[in-house]
């Protein structure tokens, strides 16, 4: 793979401030008897870009899905932009409209055109008029380099294009935080780079990003911090240089040797 991410290894300037965007303390979650998240303590600063990696089943997707309440945590506190996540629907909606999410399986709305996918939430959640929403949508579709597909249906696009639409759809809500749940795992290899390029450009704008991904080239280039999770715990977190050069725990070393060896 000869992507921009791996050829250019220059690190992005860190845009992180010392204002906390997301804070999690003593977060626990169970699926039935299975303890997925164990005492997670994590603070994420505004503008920080974080890549979370770890073996499957380690709880990394669950962790970011707790941030916009797609999963409910059962113990501990999560607050996003100062709003505490509890069962209060108003808080949940406020947080969801400020936190964008990109899924592994795109989850575009197949019965709506690309443009309608992008304008639906701004019109109904942000109360924009249709014309305003369409202008903004076209702006973001241009930024992800597919303005010409606006009138097509998601089923007519390739996987990479669909994922870029999904990113544009989230950005149309003008979110302050973006969550990416394995955004490139469902893509054919030749389409991964087009999505990663869009994500790198997004990182350059200073967006707070949490990315669950195994794209280590992307992590090296973009991340301020790499977090390694295993068995529901945060095992190790560090800057990418340190993380890849001197992994401290044995589990991290094993994981890195497995994913970097092929």
């Amino acid at each position: 793979m000869n992507t921009k991410t791996e050829t250019e290894s220059n690190q992005l300037q860190s845009a992180a401030s010392d204002e906390v965007a997301i804070s999690m303390s003593k977060v626990n979650k169970w699926f039935g008897n299975f303890h997925v998240l164990k005492d997670i303590d994590l603070s994420i600063y505004k503008g920080e870009r974080i890549v979370i990696c770890g073996p499957s089943g380690s709880g990394k997707s669950t962790l970011i899905r707790c941030i916009n309440r797609l999963e409910e945590h059962q113990d501990g506190d999560i607050s996003v932009n100062g709003v505490t996540l509890d069962s209060n629907l108003k808080n949940i909606h406020a947080i969801r409209s400020d936190v964008g999410m990109v899924f592994q399986s795109f989850n575009l709305f197949p019965h709506l055109t690309v443009l309608e996918n992008c304008t639906l939430a701004p019109v109904w959640v942000r109360n924009m008029t249709k014309t305003e929403a369409q202008e903004i949508a076209m702006e973001y579709l241009t930024r992800v380099k597919i303005p010409e597909q606006a009138e097509k249906y998601p089923g007519q696009l390739s996987g990479g294009q669909q994922q870029r639409v999904a990113i544009a759809r989230s950005l149309c809500m003008n979110p302050q935080i973006m969550l990416f749940d394995e955004p490139t795992s469902a893509l054919d290899p030749e389409m991964i780079s087009e999505v990663l390029d869009v994500m790198i450009e997004l990182a350059e704008t200073g967006m707070t990003m949490l990315v669950v991904s195994h794209e280590m080239g992307f992590a090296r280039r973009v991340a301020d911090r790499v977090i390694f999770m295993d068995y529901g715990e945060i095992v190790e977190q560090n800057t990418p240089e340190e993380f890849f050069a001197n992994p401290k725990s044995d589990r991290t070393k094993l994981f890195l040797s497995q994913i970097l060896s092929h």
Binding site: N68, H93, F103, N107, H111, L120, V125
Partner: peptide, 25 residues
């Protein structure tokens, strides 16, 4: 399930996501 989640994640309320996303499909 992804359709429900995507609708929730963009901030639609329950009735909006049912009316615009789930029911039409």
């Amino acid at each position: 399930k992804g359709q429900y989640e995507a609708a929730e994640a963009v901030g639609l309320t329950y009735w909006q996501s049912m009316g615009f996303i789930v029911m039409p499909q």
